[in-house]
Nucleic acid binder design. Structure first.
Length: 492
RNA sequence: GCACCGGUGGCGAAGUGGCUAACGCGCUGGUCUGCAAAACCAGUAUUCGCGGGUUCAAUUCCCGCCCGGUGCUCCA
């Protein structure tokens, strides 16, 4: 199946394929590890995950590089404030970042590249630019990129800089640059500031150079796709193109994949609005990692997603429905043979699922196809017309679905537990919802004892006592479900 | 201010120049249950921000307005 995706560079939906005929080579801008990741960050990483998972489901091998920016102004400032070496400061947040990715079932890229471990590549790239007078050194020892040498500057963000006059809007004197638009490749250190001693002189890399250097290092001068949040389009990606293509004289990335920002409760997410959430904030409020994943991927990447708690609750229910459907199909009584109309539904769901994702990653439509199969399958099971031969077919469709959506296996309690343990260690337990804390204060054995007592009470028709236990547990976030094959309970 | 994107039921949303406007949640009714919960089934927008226009036909194309977002500066 041909996979088509919108390309920011061309403004068209285009077919994706590995240009070397082997592996699909992609670079995705990763985190700057100075704080815990928020849901906006994770929407981007999740959409990239959807892309790579779908490519792999289609039999393509991926060579996916993600950078970790472990040196920049904020890191230097925060590390200094914390009295830590920057390496120690960033290590904590990098670890947290990958834990969060795991909680959200985001596959790790094949290659994770830290900026601080690639300084020589960056220096070499800047030297390459300097040899053609594209990079120049200013009196303070910083190096800048000469935009005048790259006439296509603006081709990604569709900006026209030809009419911009130097000095009109920017105080040129302050920067000591040849042109106001020229951007830093290498920053000379301020007194006492963290720096590397290199052939360029002492300093640290500018923001953009790391991505150019590392992408070219691992993927070559030209590769298939570059991804990131929409805000990175300009100036970050534009500058990457300028640096890379000036040095290599060939097209850097063929395809540019940009993920839209989300809104929270209809507003821009920001700390001042009070609607800023990290993944850990949500886990501590009792929301499940799988529901967060499903919500963040269910709105196609080019649409603004409005993240709401009501939506999160809705997706919690949706995950439950999908999981119980798979359980039901696995366990339901079947009749011999094949139910032909159900088989047609399964085939249609599979086709619809793949076609939707292949069409510019339309995740909303893809999951809709699966839910239609859920309804048809449940109806057949309820009517006693589920054929034995339908079962493996339906499970195969669900396997395809889960190869991309990754929400069917239940790891949620582990991650809630994880968040609580973390909160306890960090002294943030007060941020956890009372219900979650009450729930986790009870051991499985204690809960089981109460459940058994209730079953006993029911047997003697002491319904008052039975209901009292049920209500008491419910207030602590533990739900009791009576079924034909016994009593089950779960942590909400 | 300039540029770009979006505004579809109670909520999140898909989609299309003309078939009954997907799907999830919610809500209502039903099956089940000691009662619930869970699970399942069924029903649930004469209508797609507002005002014009093009067309035999517009939610879908064009113009204007209002609202939200993004970029122009650090940001996923």
């Amino acid at each position: 199946m041909t996979i088509r995706l919108f390309n920011t560079l061309s403004g068209q939906v285009e077919e994706l394929s590995p240009s070397d005929g082997k592996a699909f080579r992609m670079y995705a801008c990763g985190p700057t590890v100075y704080d815990y990741g928020h849901i906006g960050n994770f929407r981007t990483f999740l959409q990239v995950d959807v892309l790579r998972r779908f490519l792999r489901l289609n039999g393509l091998e991926t060579r996916h590089v993600m950078n970790v920016t472990d040196v920049d102004d904020k890191i230097i400032r925060n590390a200094a404030a914390a009295g830590l070496p920057i390496g120690e400061y960033t290590k904590k947040y990098e670890k947290a970042f990958f834990e969060d990715l795991d909680a959200l079932s985001v596959e790790h890229p094949e290659i994770v590249a830290r900026a601080t471990e690639h300084i020589p590549s960056m220096v070499k790239l800047i030297q390459r630019l300097a040899s053609e007078d594209i990079a120049y050194r200013t009196d303070d020892g910083s190096w800048y990129f000469r935009i005048a040498k790259f006439p296509q500057y603006g081709k990604l963000s569709k900006k026209d800089f030809t009419g911009i006059t130097d000095g009109a809007r920017v105080d040129v004197d302050e920067y000591d640059k040849d042109s106001a638009r020229d951007f830093a490749l290498w920053k000379a250190p301020k007194p006492g500031e963290y720096h590397w001693e290199t052939e360029l002189g002492p300093g640290r890399p500018g923001w953009h150079i790391e991505c150019s250097a590392m992408a070219m290092n691992y993927l070559g001068d030209a590769f298939d796709l570059h991804a990131g949040g929409e805000d990175l389009m300009f100036p970050h990606h534009e500058n990457e193109i300028a640096q890379s293509e000036s040095a290599s004289h060939c097209t850097f990335s063929r395809h540019w994949f940009h993920i839209r920002f989300l809104l929270v409760e209809g507003r821009k997410m920001s700390k001042s609005e009070g609607n800023f959430y990290t993944l850990r904030d949500l886990l501590l409020k009792g929301y499940k990692a799988s529901a967060i994943r499903l919500l963040l991927i269910s709105v196609p990447y080019r649409q603004q997603l409005n993240f709401t708690f009501e939506g999160l609750n809705a997706e919690t229910g949706a995950v439950e429905r999908l999981r119980s459907f798979r359980e039901r199909i696995r366990a339901a009584a079947t009749v011999p043979g094949l139910n032909a109309s159900l088989a047609a539904e399964a085939a249609r769901a599979k086709e619809g699922f793949h076609a939707a994702l292949a069409n510019d990653l339309n995740t909303a439509e893809a999951r809709a196809a699966i839910f239609e199969l859920v309804r048809a399958g449940n109806a057949a099971a309820a009517a006693g017309t589920l054929g034995a031969e339908n079962v493996p077919e339906i499970l195969a469709v669900l396997a395809d679905f889960d190869a991309v959506f990754a929400v069917l296996d239940d790891h949620d309690p582990e991650w809630t537990r994880f968040a609580l343990d973390w909160a306890e260690k960090e002294g943030r337990l007060d941020q956890a919802s009372p219900e979650i804390r009450a729930q986790l204060a009870l051991t499985d054995e204690q809960i089981q004892a109460l459940v058994d007592e209730r079953t006993q009470a029911k047997r003697t028709r002491n319904f008052a006592r039975a209901d009292q236990i049920r209500n008491d547990l419910a207030s602590k976030g533990i739900l009791i479900e009576d079924s034909k094959d016994g009593v089950r309970w779960k942590r909400k």
